[in-house]
Structures are given as structure tokens and as C-alpha cells.
Write a protein that binds this DNA or RNA. Structure first.
Lengths: 142, 142
DNA sequence: GTACAACCTCCACCCACTGTAGGTTCAAGC
DNA sequence: GCTTGAACCTACAGTGGGTGGAGGTTGTAC
């Protein structure tokens, strides 16, 4: 049986994060010692590894919840897993496209700025006047 | 003078977002009507446009705060603007690299899954066992 | 038996907003 | 001048995915 700290080290997770996963029902409530400390079995280690791995691949926790449910019922068709993964792939591809457009625009801004004072700065100029942009970048964020 | 709703429409910002920017000191406190409603001048329209444009390019609000300060003192060197933009470019490039690695891994998972039941699903299999991954993807998230 | 690292709960905070409830003001039409 | 109703106001809760800290308790090695 593993303490929460050992489980954390083995999975590369912070202790608080494990407790957070328990709180939101992603991890089961583990057994406790007489004194109230959590003790984990290998099944829980596997489950947390699964969660962490899916997180590394960018799956949101809700999707992970579904994937865990599928993984727990091995006779079910894996069609749904495919759907979830494909959805995630599309999301990742959208983000890449968007970030590549941002990269182009940022590079251009930086390249055009010859380094005088702020009044003539192309970086600030482009920010002031959207019409100086070559690309449309309507959506917010990265 | 513009109402907050008109300013919102003109800049493609939500009304709540404008009030939020005021709350965190990114937008100045505007004038008010006798009844207490906000009224904005063109200077404030320009400032909000600048903020929104920088957000579209993915700059975090703290960076935007610095960029606004630079834009307000036109005699200052624009070196700092260059530093901020370059930092942002590097961040964007890092994210692109990371997302491209995720894309590769997701594609492989989906491709390998031939669609049986969940027990044999390659998608769930890869998630269960990190050693089946070709790439290292230590960091979390997208 | 003691020291102290690791654990416990509870709560606040991060970013950048978004949404809602419950009440007030402005402007257009009559 | 009066009514209507859209737009405004404040205040607060919630989003995702955690992170950090205070203040107190337990487990374990010596």
C-alpha cells in the first residue's frame, strides 16, 4: 500500500492534485490508516497513471472521465474512445493552426521594428491599428 | 461619448469584460452620467482596441499592461516592447512544438485502433501504458 | 520516547473572463 | 409628459485545472 506522497512521486503528480482528483470524483476514495491517512493500491496507481497520461495528451478531465469508464467496461465497443480521441485531435489541430498564424504575425511585427523610440515602434503601431495586420485573428487567446 | 454597450460592439468585447478590465486597472475609470452609467471617449476606444488586439495575439494581461505603459510614453526606447514581443513569440513557438508532438501521438493512437471492443482498444491501451508512447510528453496540457 | 517529515482539512488564489439575480436609468415613441 | 423596455448598474458565483498556505495531527526512524 502506498502513501499519497509515494503515489505522487511514482506518477509525477502533486499531492494536492491527487486530493483534488478525489474531490471531483476522478479518483476513488482510498482506504485509510487508523490515523486517517490515505493508502493506495496498485489499481489506484494504474488509474492515476492513466489520468496523468491522458492529461499529458491534452484531454480535458471530462473526456478522461469517459475514457476511464470505457476502460472499466472492456466488453463495450471502443467506438466512443475513437470519437473522443478524434475530437481531441481536431482540437489540437485547430490550436496549431491558430498558433501558427499568431507566430507569423508576431515575427513580422518584431522584424519590422527597427528599434527607435516607442512613438515609431512597429510593435506598438500594429497593436494600435488592427488594419496593419495581414491575418485575421478574431478569436482570443493562445 | 459612447455607452459601454456601444464600446463593446465597436471593439468586439463583452460588456462584462470591459468592466472587468476597469476593475483590474487595465482600463481607466470612465466618466459617468448623472444616473451613474459609464461614458467613454475615443481615447478609451483606442485603448480598448489596443488591449483586444494584443489579447488576440495571445499576450497575457500583464504584458499588455507593460505595452500600454510604453505606448503612453512615446519617447521611451522600444527595446522593451521588442523584449515582450519576442518572449511571446518564444512562448507561441514552444506551444506549437508541444502541440505538434501531441498531434503525432494522437494520430498514431487513432490509426492503430481497429475498432474492436474496449479491452483491445489501442487508444485505451496507450493511455494505460505510457511505455507504448513514442514521444516523451512530460509537460501537462495543451 | 522524541524528533520531524509527511500527512490531514479547509480555504483562498491563479488567469481571463462569463453568467446571473435583482434593481435602476436612458431614450424612443406616443 | 408618460410609458415601455432595452440597456445599464452592482455584487457575487462559477469556469478549468489545479496550486499554495495555515494550523494542526500522524507515522516512522532512531
Amino acid at each position: 500500500m502506498l502513501s499519497i506522497g509515494t503515489l505522487a512521486k511514482r506518477t509525477g503528480t502533486k499531492v494536492q492534485t491527487i486530493r483534488y482528483y478525489e474531490e471531483i470524483g476522478l479518483m476513488p476514495e482510498p482506504g485509510r490508516t487508523a490515523g486517517g491517512q490515505r493508502r493506495y493500491s496498485d489499481a489506484e496507481l494504474d488509474r492515476l497513471s492513466f489520468i496523468r497520461h491522458a492529461r499529458q495528451l491534452g484531454f480535458p478531465l471530462d473526456a478522461i472521465r469517459e475514457l476511464l469508464a470505457l476502460s472499466d467496461s472492456p466488453t463495450q465497443s471502443c467506438e466512443e474512445a475513437d470519437t473522443i480521441a478524434t475530437r481531441q485531435l481536431k482540437l489540437v489541430e485547430q490550436r496549431i493552426d491558430r498558433l501558427q498564424a499568431l507566430r507569423t504575425e508576431l515575427k513580422r511585427m518584431i522584424h519590422e521594428c527597427s528599434g527607435g523610440n516607442a512613438a515609431d515602434c512597429r510593435i506598438l503601431g500594429v497593436l494600435r491599428d488592427h488594419s496593419e495586420c495581414l491575418t485575421n485573428h478574431d478569436e482570443i487567446g493562445a
